[in-house]
Every structure is written in C-alpha cells, then in structure tokens.
Design a protein around this nucleic acid. Structure first.
Lengths: 322, 322
DNA sequence: CTGAAAGCGCTAACAA
DNA sequence: TTGTTAGCGCTTTCAG
C-alpha cells in the first residue's frame, strides 16, 4: 500500500519495474484513490473557496469567470460560497473556516472585518482579496479614488457642472469602492471649484430598479443634473431606462458614465470606466495559489489599471444608439 | 469521543446532562468537527457538483444562480466544474466520478453520452440534467421543438415568409436544443407551406461575433430574409449589432426573435422566447437533493413552460429602442 | 446511556 | 528500494 502511494504521488524513489507493476494493477482494477482519505491523511483539501457577494451581480460573475479559468488549470477544485443574505454576512468567514473545507480563500468584492482577518490568520488560511482591501491581506485592486476622479473629471471637461453620483450605500462596511469613488468624485468637483451638492448624491441598494428610482428623483429636482456618474454599469442601465421612459435624450440632455465595463454596457453603448474584471479574477487566483505554496513575507498588492471607454452616452456629437 | 459524536449528530439517546456537558466543552474549546474525517468515516462528501459548459454563457450563469440559491439553503456545498475546453469534454464525467468528490451531480446544458451515463450509474451517482435530456436520467427541460415552432410561427403570423435560423452547430452531440428548435422551425415553415431554404439556416460557434458574421452573410444574399430566428439571445444581440452597423432598421426592415430571455434582451428590447432559466436551476437542484435522499424508481422529467415575450424587435408598430 | 475500540482509505515514518 | 505500521479525526458497533 505504501508503495502504491509512492507511485501515485511520484514521491520517493521507486524502481522502474515496481512502478510498472503498480501502474498495471491500477489500470486493471480501474482504481482511483479516495480523496477524502487522502485529505484526512494529508491535512489538505485541494479545494479553494470563493466567497462571493450577490452572485447575480454581473461584475462579480465576470471576476469569477477569471477565477474559474485559473482553477481549471490547477490541481484544485473550486467551491462557491454565495453571501447573499445579510444574516450570512456576519459569520461567513467563521463558517468557512470552521468547516476546514478549503485550503485557500478568495474573497471577491467583500471587505473583511478586522475580526475576520484575525480568525483567518489564527487558522493560517491563505487568503486573497479581489476588489477589496485590508492591510493584512494580499489583494488585487484598482484605484477607485482615481476611477471616481477620472469619471467625474471627464464629465467636467465636457462642460458639465451639475453632476450627480448614483451609488450603493456609502456606509456599507463591506463595500469600500463606493466610498473611494465618492472621494474621487468630490476631489474632481473641488478641483474644478464646483461645490458638492448633497441632493446630487443618491444612495440605494445595488441594482437597476433602485438606480432607476434614484434617477427619477433626480429628474424631479428643480435644478436637475446634466450629467450622471453611476457607481456601476448596472446602475447606469437603470438610469438609461428611466431617461428612455421619460424621453430625456442621452447624451444631448443628459450625459451618463458608468463603471466596470460589463458586457451589457457595450451593447448599450454606455461610456464607462473599464476595470479588467476578468483579469482581476485571474490575478487573484494566481496570487492565491502562489500564496498557498509560499506565503509572502508581507501582503502583496496588485494594482490593476483603469481605462475610460468613451461610448455614446457622453458625447453630444454622436447619435444615440439605435 | 463516541459520545461527542452522538451529541453532534443528535443520533441516539444521550442523557440531557451529558449533552449539556459536551456542548459546554465544545463551546469552550471552540471546537468544530473536521469535515475530511467525517467524510471519510461516513463515505459522504456533502458536496454536490455542477458540471457547466462555457461558464461565460449568460444563460448558463443564470441557471447556476438558481442552483446556488438552493444549495445555500441546504447542508451541501457546491463545486463548480467548468467544461470549457474540448479536451476536457471527453472525460469530464469520468474525472468527476474518479475523484469521489461529490455526492451528486448536476449537469447543466450538457448532454451526456450513453457511456457517461453507464459510468454514472455504475458509480451510483445521483445525477440530474438541466437543459439536457437522457432517457435514463432525471431532468429539467423545456420543449425546444415547441419553442422553435413558437418563434417561427410568430414570425409567420406577422406576415414573414423569408425567415432565417441562426444557430450553433446542429451536429454538436452535447447540444440537443439546437436541433430541437431547428425541428420546430422546420415544422412551422412546413405547416405554412413555406419551403425550407438551406441558405437561410446558418450555423456557427456560439457567441455574438459569430452571429454577427452570419447575419452579414445573410444580408449579402440576393434574396435576404425579412425575419431572423436566433437560437439564443446572445446570438440575437450579434444580429442586432450587424443591423445597426449596416443601417438596417429593426423591426421595420427586419424582424428578430431570440431565445432565453436573458437580462440583456430586456435592455435591448429584443423579442424572445422566455424559458425560466433561474427556475430551471432551482428545480434541477431540488430534484437532485431529493434524488439523493430517495432515488426515484424511474427518471423524472420536469417540463418548464415557455413564453413568448413580445418586445420591440418584431413589431413594426413600435419605434425602435433608443 | 456511555466508554472503548475498530475501521473509513490514505500518507509518511520506520524498519528491513 | 520496499513492506509494515501508525496515525489523520471522525462514526459506529459492541460491551459494559
């Protein structure tokens, strides 16, 4: 039995002849090792976990696709943990750890609490953050402050002064990009000498319909904005729906810029800030795999680039899409 | 140790007092059982696997979301197997089985070969098919022949006679819906006395750009079609892109109907046949869970409904979308 | 009702 | 180099 194990794992030296015999027997019996036993014995599960909020969110799905593409080429399997309900949010890390079911953890678009991180480290669980940041964990991120600035600045350069920001809730502790982009938005306004108007910053739960409602609210303002910076493309789509419903011409009467560059923003010709979602999944997963084999002395940070994709919701010179 | 196990699993009778003591100790030590050991001992992994082709395909993702929503409420974890590359297709089932890593298997939009099914049954692996059919396996499906018929018939009723079908490759053994919808398409044509024209049926790899190319090809025909039935909404989007590029007015000069009712088809106002993707994931997973606890005497078939969603790519009376 | 002990199938350390 | 053996941490059977 020991010898068989040696052959299977290419471990220590085995004579060529014995190896052949073992291999033959394996083929004959159609034998394959029991993973549960191997796991128990080795103390490794050969599974990595992806902790994901709102699996319905297209940008999260896109990142996950990047992750999957890397996992496929590795020895590991991928377990998906969806953190949709608020109740599960509290203890998701604890749950995953206690089950001792994964050798490494990828947290996507979820900022862990200090307590979470303490537990993670106590359990020596290799962890990589994608689209989230914590000083003690390796991460793959973009500069969201710069992104918010870039979007807002672009609108300002087009001549807009009344610029609204439609976003998720700023005080969500799990979602720091919302705040960062808001910071960038404020910076760009300040730099241009445009005072921040609280009524131009609307927050709501993430999604098309909430964004649409917020847009409706903005249009009812006595002094409605002439340009919208939406926290995500999903929300930009909601904005677009409302403008269509109300007959507001985009971009002639209202400019719109989103964030993420999800596929739908391409169909809809929405100007947006592209962050390489797929690449973030790839890099995050690669970083995790690497961290699992040789833990870096200190947390790594990978900064992915942002790019403004100019489409038809911001340029008054181009016709609206058909 | 035995007693602890009894407490944890609420198994046989344990005195209330002992139970309390054990529970207290557990809490104190922050103990939680090792899953790998439990698995080895019980011979169950408490994991179900989802075998998924082309994880990038929006309709597959949507189904998966339904699956995830059910898994979350169960005791099981979900492992994702992405079958993107052709090489992996051959042996995906064998791979999953040999690893003995899941207690049940969900195959989404993948038709297994007879050989696969034989292996599955030899391994006593509970399996449920979603959007695929095999006489010996339980499945959640729609009537794709009826769907193809419904779409084509609708175009015919609008007055069209030159109707093209843009689809994936008909001879893909893993993809039977392509053929079924084609059958429905032919039936509707025949019923209306419209001869089938081979040049109106184009096949290509799945995706927007291939569909766009096929559409270009159709427009170059001396006698181009006046209506398109696209196998999927993704392909319908490609068609729409080409019409926009060529300045062909939809629906005035060309009617278009898709299939699936993915979210993007709503943004783009594409008429489509809705199959409840999310619900199929839910039903499939529920059926699997049920099959795992008490295997049905014979394979079950769940038939989900189809519905024609009329939007702006087929009705000449409505304006095109903005 | 509870403690002891065997065994799940593998890996790894130890002899031979 | 290779056979043997002791765990890995749980569940479950068997005594007590």
């Amino acid at each position: 039995m020991g010898t068989v194990s040696r052959v299977l794992n290419g471990h220590t030296a085995v004579s060529a002849e014995t190896r052949q015999r073992v291999l033959a027997a394996i083929a004959e019996l159609n034998y394959s090792p029991n993973l549960a036993a191997r796991r128990l014995s080795r103390g490794k599960t050969m599974v990595i976990g992806a902790l994901v909020p709102y699996f319905t969110n297209p940008s999260v799905v896109r990142r996950l696709q990047g992750v999957v593409s890397v996992v496929k080429g590795s020895q590991y399997d991928l377990i998906l943990f969806d953190v949709e309900s608020v109740e599960r949010r509290d203890s998701y890390v604890r749950n995953v750890l206690r089950r001792q079911i994964v050798d490494g953890l990828l947290m996507i678009s979820l900022t862990p609490t200090d307590e979470d991180v303490a537990e993670l480290q106590r359990a020596h669980m290799p962890t990589v953050l994608v689209d989230a940041r914590h000083p003690q964990l390796s991460r793959v991120v973009v500069d969201n402050v710069a992104g918010g600035y870039m979007a807002t600045r672009y609108l300002i350069d087009l001549g807009h002064r009344r610029i609204a920001y439609i976003s998720d809730f700023l005080d969500d502790p799990f979602n720091s990009p919302v705040r960062d982009r808001f910071t960038g938005y404020c910076q760009a306004l300040a730099e241009a000498g445009i005072p921040f108007r609280p009524e131009y910053h609307l927050q709501g739960i993430h999604g098309r319909s909430a964004a649409r409602q917020m847009m409706r609210q903005l249009l009812q303002l006595p002094d409605p904005p002439t340009a919208i910076f939406a926290y995500s493309d999903t929300q930009a789509i909601g904005v677009l729906e409302e403008t269509q419903a109300q007959g507001v011409a985009v971009p002639q009467h209202l400019a719109l810029i989103g964030f993420d560059n999800i596929e739908a923003s391409e169909y809809l010709h929405i100007t947006t800030i592209s962050q390489s979602l797929y690449a973030s999944g790839i890099s995050g997963c690669e970083l995790l795999l690497q961290t699992m084999t040789e833990p870096p002395s200190e947390p790594q940070e990978l900064l992915l680039p942002l790019e403004l994709i100019q489409r038809q919701t911001t340029d008054p010179l181009l016709p609206t899409s058909a």
